[in-house]
Design a protein around this nucleic acid. Structure first.
Lengths: 234, 234
DNA sequence: ACCTGAACACCGTTCAAGT
DNA sequence: ACCTGAACACCGTTCAAGT
């Protein structure tokens, strides 16, 4: 009735061999489509089941619970970065580092509705996540840092990318005008409450204050790379 | 029966003047206690009502919905940073910037269970949030950057703090050993899948790989400050 | 104005039963 | 082994009714 064409509708019990309607993979793909189209909150087990033309309880034979579904989605996102950029020795450490950062950001950007979940779970999940940092390690190893320095610098850079991506994901569109909002908010403050902010925003507002995520990311990256170069004399 | 001592239990209708049991403030304080003690998921409207000894629907006379409760909590957190550090002209830009960063991080750390919500909502909320960046602006204004440079540098630094705090919040304890987990994960990789990572982690693991959030934050901050100093010749 | 009870339309998950 | 139906213990929120 809801979906007249769904396979096996109205029959129950074990499907014949080769006729399974469900698999972990198929479930995760359907879940990702829901999240991309309608957001995290829309992804409920019951909703997921109906889009698959299946009883809600069937899902539990392939994934233990809802948290496992989200964990699986996070893995999908990380799997989508990795090995894209094979080792490239033709290029200096800074270029390689910048490339790794872009790849990482782009993977997070591919599914903005999932980003919050990814960032919250990043620590938690599987081997897939760990491979993803290889290019960062390689670039800084080539630059000649010590293991400890590499470890700390990579952590810092990835923290920046996470924070940046969080901000980017929380705004749907690619570009947005900060000006009206920020100007408005600042002008509502009691005078003297944030004088420097008021002054700076006033000056920027005159030129038309706006923010491009691409530029912001580039600025952050190169500030970070300048820090590395300065501190380690590169 | 559930709470024999709750005020006004069993009576309904409008309370007499001066006898109101509820207020936005009281509701938010109770909500924060629940979040701190049991996490975001435990904070449901029905749960909140019972801890206040009140019908769930009473809450809706003070806050329009659950999202507004969380938005109110986010405001509380930001209100907890601000004006702690009054302008201090005795000190150089770098010290002032570092101080602002610590204050910001500490406010986020005060309610780890709320951090994810705060970071997800940070863009969305009220004037309270905007005041919070004043010390950052002041420090870099004093350093002599242009308005545009200040704007971009502050964005970058705050992105780092957000990403860092996300990682910190997602791990409950103050310190944790990365070694067993990270070493284990890396050793499970297929050989050659992440050679540099494997090498670095191997070396660090020998010394006992561990991570202190306080040190990590300091490292990130000073890398960032080095970048500012190098780029702008300070 | 402020609080309440009953109701609606949802959830995730367990359990026993089908094939 | 895999799928199902009914049931349990929850949700957020609307609406009409109390004082």
């Amino acid at each position: 009735m809801v979906n007249a064409g769904k396979p096996g509708a109205g029959r129950s019990g074990r499907p014949r061999a080769g006729e399974e309607r469900l698999s972990r993979q198929a479930i995760l793909e359907a879940a990702l489509r829901i999240v991309d189209a309608e957001g995290l909150e829309a992804m409920t087990m019951r909703r997921l089941a109906t889009t698959l033309g299946v009883n809600p309880m069937s899902l539990y034979h392939h994934l233990p619970n809802k948290a496992a579904v989200f964990a699986g989605l996070v893995e999908l996102v990380f799997a989508g970065m990795g090995n894209s950029a094979a080792a490239d020795d033709e290029v200096d450490w800074r270029t390689e580092l910048t490339g790794a950062a872009h790849a990482y950001r782009n993977a997070l950007r591919a599914h903005p509705n999932l980003a919050l979940q990814v960032l919250a779970d990043a620590a938690g999940v599987s081997e897939v996540v760990v491979v993803t940092v290889e290019p960062f390690y390689r670039a800084l190893d080539r630059a000649g840092l010590t293991p400890r320095q590499i470890f700390e610098a990579v952590n810092t850079l990835i923290d920046f990318i996470h924070g940046f991506s969080l901000g980017e994901a929380s705004v749907r569109s690619e570009t947005f005008e900060l000006a009206p909002d920020l100007l408005e908010r600042v002008s509502k403050l009691q005078p003297g409450q944030a004088p420097t902010l008021a002054k700076i925003v006033g000056i920027l507002g005159a030129d038309g204050l706006h923010y491009e995520f691409d530029d912001g990311f580039e600025t952050g990256l190169s500030l970070f790379a300048d820090g590395i170069a300065a501190r380690f004399g590169l």
